[in-house]
């Protein structure tokens, strides 16, 4: 293999020096051939076709898909509440990282699920979190009955836990919560006619894969915390 090489900084500096010396040497190179592109009529036709197909796909969803999206918004929103406790409740850096990622990932997923529902003329649940209290409006009166949702008592317990007690409780409850999401995916896939839509299938599969991986990781983290630690 190659020997030691300078860092990009030094490399960039060396380049700059070279450029100063030889800057004009290649200025006479011929202009490059522009890329071959499709003509504008054709691309306009294809773009119109894209939009027409996007519209028609919106007409062909299964009620179970809509139920899944609506319920998962409330489900994700509770994960935001749980993860949002971490900074105030003195969670360890590892748990803080985990929580930050859960918040980032699930906020994005909530947004695409809301958009999916609105695109189909359906009511998309809105959520508000104030001082760690979750309010859901519209669409998802059933959110609290989704598998894995924490009871109000469990949420209060987590709200008041601190430090390593919080870490342990958070992991146990988020495993329960994630397992509920995986169950929701299984129920969706077991419904006749559901998840034929690629978008729904991909979102549900991603939730299953991401949260399944996260359950395994959280279980390892929980195992590594001896009760005395």
């Amino acid at each position: 293999m190659t020997g030691p090489q300078p860092s990009p900084h030094l490399f960039a500096a060396a380049l700059a020096a070279t450029l100063v010396l030889h800057g004009c040497a290649t200025a006479s190179m011929p202009a490059p051939t522009p890329p071959a592109r499709p003509d504008a009529d054709r691309t306009a036709r294809l773009e119109a076709l894209y939009r027409a197909r996007a519209d028609s796909v919106r007409m062909t969803y299964h009620p179970a898909d809509a139920h899944f999206m609506s319920g998962m918004i409330g489900h994700h929103a509770q994960a935001l509440v749980m993860s949002g406790f971490a900074p105030e409740n003195d969670a360890s850096p590892t748990i803080q990282t985990l929580c930050a990622r859960i918040i980032n990932a699930q906020k994005d997923e909530i947004a695409v699920m809301q958009e999916w529902l609105r695109d189909r003329g359906l009511e998309a649940p809105e959520y508000h979190i104030e001082d760690g209290h979750l309010m859901i409006h519209g669409g998802a009166e059933h959110a609290m009955h989704m598998p894995g949702m924490l009871s109000p008592e469990q949420i209060e317990e987590l709200r008041h836990a601190r430090g390593s007690d919080f870490d342990r409780l958070f992991l146990a409850y988020m495993i329960q919560h994630h397992e509920g999401a995986v169950t929701m995916v299984h129920e969706l896939f077991a419904t006749n006619g559901a998840a034929q839509d690629d978008f729904v299938f991909k979102l549900a599969s991603d939730i299953q894969a991401d949260q399944g991986s996260e359950i395994a990781r959280m279980q390892l983290m929980l195992d590594a915390m001896s009760p005395s630690n």
Binding site: L19, A31, P32
Partner: peptide, 17 residues
């Protein structure tokens, strides 16, 4: 360093390759 080079070379880099 690149900004520096840019400043010194202004007018030279006529080809976009």
């Amino acid at each position: 360093p690149c900004l520096l080079a840019l400043a010194l070379m202004a007018g030279c880099a006529s080809s976009d390759t």
